[in-house]
Simulated assay, not measured.
Amino acid sequence: MANFNNETYEALVDDLLNDAFYLEGASRRGTIAKIRQYAEVIVRKILDIPRKTKVTLGDKRIIAKIEEKNNPLLSDAIKVINKMGSKCTHTQLTREITPEDIEAVINSLFNLYAYLLIDYFEKYEFGKNLEAVRQFSILPPIIRYLTLDYLYGKYPDNIMIIDKLSLALLKALNKEAAIQWIEERKEKLIITPSITKEAEEDIIKKAGKEFGLLIISTAPNMYNLCVERINLVAEDISKNGKLYIDFESAIDYYKESGPISGETPEIEEFNSIMDFLYLGRKSYSELS
Score class of each variant (00 low, 15 high):
L74K: 04
S75I: 11
A77H: 10
A77G: 05
I81F: 11
N82I: 03
G85Y: 04
G85R: 08
S86Y: 13
S86G: 14
S86W: 00
S86D: 00
K87Q: 05
K87D: 08
K87F: 08
C88D: 13
T89K: 01
T89R: 05
T89F: 07
H90G: 06
H90Q: 08
H90I: 09
T91S: 13
T91K: 10
L93R: 15
R95G: 01
R95L: 06
R95T: 09
I97R: 02
I97K: 03
D101A: 05
D101G: 04
D101I: 06
I102V: 12
E103W: 07
A104I: 08
A104P: 01
V105Q: 01
V105K: 05
I106S: 00
I106W: 11
N107H: 13
S108D: 00
L109D: 04
L109A: 00
L109H: 11
F110P: 01
F110L: 13
N111T: 00
N111K: 15
N111D: 13
L112Y: 02
A114C: 02
A114Q: 06
A114S: 13
Y115Q: 10
Y115F: 15
Y115P: 03
L116C: 06
L116Q: 02
L116T: 09
L116A: 06
L117H: 04
D119E: 13
D119S: 13
Y120K: 09
Y120N: 00
E122L: 10
K123F: 11
Y124H: 14
Y124C: 07
Y124F: 14
E125M: 07
E125D: 08
E125Y: 00
E125C: 05
E125W: 06
G127V: 07
K128I: 15
K128Q: 15
K128E: 14
N129R: 14
N129M: 12
N129C: 12
N129F: 12
L130M: 14
E131T: 13
E131H: 12
E131N: 15
A132T: 11
A132E: 14
V133P: 04
V133S: 03
V133I: 08
R134V: 03
R134D: 10
Q135R: 12
S137C: 13
S137I: 07
I138T: 03
I138V: 14
L139P: 10
L139K: 03
L139D: 02
P141A: 12
P141Y: 10
R144H: 06
R144K: 15
R144S: 15
Y145F: 15
Y145D: 00
L146R: 15
T147W: 09
T147Y: 02
T147H: 11
L148F: 12
D149L: 12
D149M: 07
D149A: 14
Y150R: 10
Y152L: 15
G153S: 05
K154C: 03
K154S: 07
